[in-house]
């Protein structure tokens, strides 16, 4: 056996040992990727840009989410996240059965609006039986009734410089050292103008229940549940969300979840 072969074998064994050792240690080393500003994490997050580009560019960007039949509503809609906000302004509205509720629409619009629930109900209504997909992995089918968001946007006359719809919510989801953090979300105008994107005030033939976001929640049927903000207080048209929260476009996005949740 020549030295050449021996050294090759040794190299191979050392190499295999290194791979095995790094595999075992790998899980711990990779825990660093949980840090939001990890460079490798940033690189890997770019894959989601590719996902969005493919879904928007290759697949039909106007496609409607699958709608189901009444017989498919087999259970109450499972609530998630905050299910009973304790914020003083919200509790006051709830105690008044949302009679004094106003949805404020502002930001980059020519005509800011202040809409009561009655105003919203008088606008064109769309009912759709769709499947709600949670990022955790579960799905639940329910019927939603509400005004398509594009009607509200058209009435407010969105400025051409607007790029995103920002939803401000009543519910405090986290209390941090810097104060209470209320839920917020953003979607772009492609999804905002999609015919199935609703400001929903009804669910399964009844007014929207408190655990599911009363009096008003968002439905963005081609994305995951965390995009569909509940307890909506105000809508703001913005051209940039980097100055809001931690700058990633939503409460969960600020905690590492993808801004585009079509996957």
């Amino acid at each position: 056996m020549s030295d050449h072969v021996v050294s090759r074998r040794r190299l191979l064994r050392t190499g295999l040992g290194t791979i095995a050792a790094s595999t075992v240690a790998g899980c711990k080393v990779l825990d660093g990727l949980s840090a939001p500003d990890h460079r490798l994490r940033h690189f890997m997050e770019r894959a989601n840009d590719l996902t969005m580009a493919m879904q928007r560019g290759v697949l039909d960007r106007d496609a409607l989410a699958q709608e189901f039949a009444p017989v498919d509503i087999r259970q109450p809609q499972r609530p998630n996240g905050v299910t009973d906000p304790q914020d003083a302004d919200y509790v006051a509205h709830r105690n008044a059965r949302f009679a004094n509720y106003r949805l404020e629409v502002g930001g980059l619009v020519h005509r800011p609006l202040s809409l009561s629930l009655a105003d919203l109900r008088q606008m064109p209504t769309r009912r759709q039986i769709t499947r709600h997909d949670c990022v955790e992995g579960w799905s639940c089918i329910a019927e939603w009734a509400g005004v398509p968001l594009w009607h509200v946007l058209d009435r407010a006359m969105v400025h051409t410089s607007a790029r995103y719809v920002l939803f401000h919510c009543f519910d405090t989801i986290e209390r941090s050292l810097s104060g209470a953090i209320r839920y917020y979300e953003t979607i772009d105008l492609v999804d905002a103008r999609h015919p199935q994107t609703l400001l929903a005030w009804g669910m399964n033939g009844a007014p929207l229940p408190v655990p599911n976001g009363a009096p008003l929640r968002v439905r963005v049927e081609r994305q995951l549940g965390y995009k569909m903000a509940k307890y909506v207080r105000a809508i703001e048209l913005v051209d940039d969300f980097s100055g809001i929260g931690r700058g990633r476009g939503g409460y969960w996005e600020d905690r590492g979840y993808e801004w585009y949740a079509g996957i």
């Binding site: 990727l33 949980s34 955790e136 979840y257």
Partner: peptide, 24 residues
């Protein structure tokens, strides 16, 4: 258990980031 997941702790967001990267 922690030894069977990446990251080892409970971290769905990071799991998704790595999952979709390697899916591509």
């Amino acid at each position: 258990p922690p030894w069977a997941t990446i990251p080892s702790g409970t971290d769905l967001a990071t799991g998704r980031v790595i999952h979709f990267f390697f899916a591509w």
